[in-house]
Nucleic acid binder design. Structure first.
Lengths: 232, 232
DNA sequence: TTTGATTTAAATCTAAAGATTGAGAAAATC
DNA sequence: GATTTTCTCAATCTTTAGATTTAAATCAAA
């Protein structure tokens, strides 16, 4: 099948020059591939993507240097539809998670067989994602962990639960940037009543002003609206 | 290997009674499994989890009824370490994504072979996650899509880009709930200077008060801090 | 039916926030 | 070297926010 298609341009990025040569030799054996270029620098790699428009970039990621992740992100930003396959020596759940998060189409280990690598490349070239079963499992460890942390916040000791339904309505309008007059108008009550509610909200949430109240609401899953925690 | 372990208790939840019997017969052939119970109701299923403490729950999910997803979430909340394997007739990316998000350990289709189902169960019982390659690919479609929507927000026309570095510092402290005095103290400048900065921030962000400024900042990816969009 | 919580409201006061103008010093840019 | 931003600060003023007290009407529950 592959023999009848146009050759797929591949760009190799790996800061280990020897490793780079090894992969290149391995892939040149495949008649359907065309090695568009190789480089040991992530930044040069981005420029080569702009220049040669490869279908796929095989990129090494080292745990100490985070350049690889950022490079993937920048390649994605170009909007050229370039697919990135991560070839890493680490099966760290966090690294796998972040690589997929920034847009990688696959993640394989350097210890895998050449046949597996070719399979991964073909899967990705055909528009699919590819993550080996073992790495997929590690990915989900991290994926679900990030949501568990969220729901732990809105467990108990959430001061929002002490609010009455009317106070929730007032807080909702506060989180939309309304002042006293705006809230009074929207709830058809007097401004002084709104002040009473707002003061009660402050006491219950143990804050001093509306900005702190709004921040508390947003950070504690107000109105079942889930917000991701601040992440690097 | 499995023959020497204690039998694993399995709970089956499927609103199709016939299907339920079929799976039950299939799994009773496996000597290492012990069917702890079967039910066609998600709510009864949760109670059976509390009662029999199965190692694994095999749960059907229908697209129209969202009860299944909520049931998974509630089983997770129990904190009994019960693993949930979704057995669904749909390979919808959104459904797969949400099932894994709420805590499922695996997701397989009803069309799969019995050997594959047994393999999935064993993988999950051994502490891994299991998602077949084809479904894994669909999962990542949705996963990466959700992040692409985020970065589109902070594209252009982001008024935050007009802020000077000092104004960014002030805004950062505003988003932490500080008042004028607090900001002045932390930046070692006078309170009047802070007022000047804040007023400039208001003009640049086209808002009227600090709460609106803070909300604008949080909703437009202030300081590269990524926040998920409001999701149901 | 009475108790307790909620919602509504007013009056008063202090403190903080916000608008505006003007202006000097430093730093970056041209 | 001249120009423009940026950062700093002050003074003044108006408005809004927030604290506190008191209290009436409503409503659900004991």
């Amino acid at each position: 099948m592959r023999e009848f298609k146009r050759k797929s341009r591949i760009l190799l990025v790996d800061d280990n020059a020897e490793h780079l040569r090894g992969i290149k030799e391995l892939l040149t054996l495949e008649t359907s591939y065309d090695i568009a270029g190789t480089t040991t620098s992530a930044n040069i790699g981005i420029n080569l993507v702009k220049k040669y428009r490869p279908e796929i970039v095989i990129m090494d990621i080292n745990l100490p240097e985070k350049d690889g992740l950022q490079a993937i992100q920048e390649i994605e930003k170009l909007g050229l539809g370039t697919k990135v396959l991560v070839l890493s020596g680490y099966d760290d759940p966090d690294l796998i998670y972040r690589a997929m998060k920034v847009g990688a189409k696959g993640y394989v280990l350097k210890t895998m067989s050449s046949a597996q690598l070719v399979y991964a490349i073909d899967e990705i070239l055909s528009g699919k994602y590819y993550l080996p079963s073992a790495l997929s499992s590690k990915f989900f460890e991290h994926f679900q962990q990030s949501f568990r942390e969220e729901s732990e916040v809105s467990d108990e000791e959430n001061l929002l639960t002490y609010l009455t339904s009317r106070e929730e309505e007032v807080l909702e309008l506060l989180t939309q940037g309304n002042n006293y007059k705006g809230i009074a108008g929207k709830l058809f009550i007097s401004e002084t009543t709104v002040k009473t509610h707002v003061n009660n909200i402050f006491q219950k949430l143990q804050v001093n002003d509306r900005t702190q109240a709004v921040l508390y609401a947003l950070n504690n899953g107000f109105g079942k609206k889930i917000r991701a925690k601040i992440s690097a």
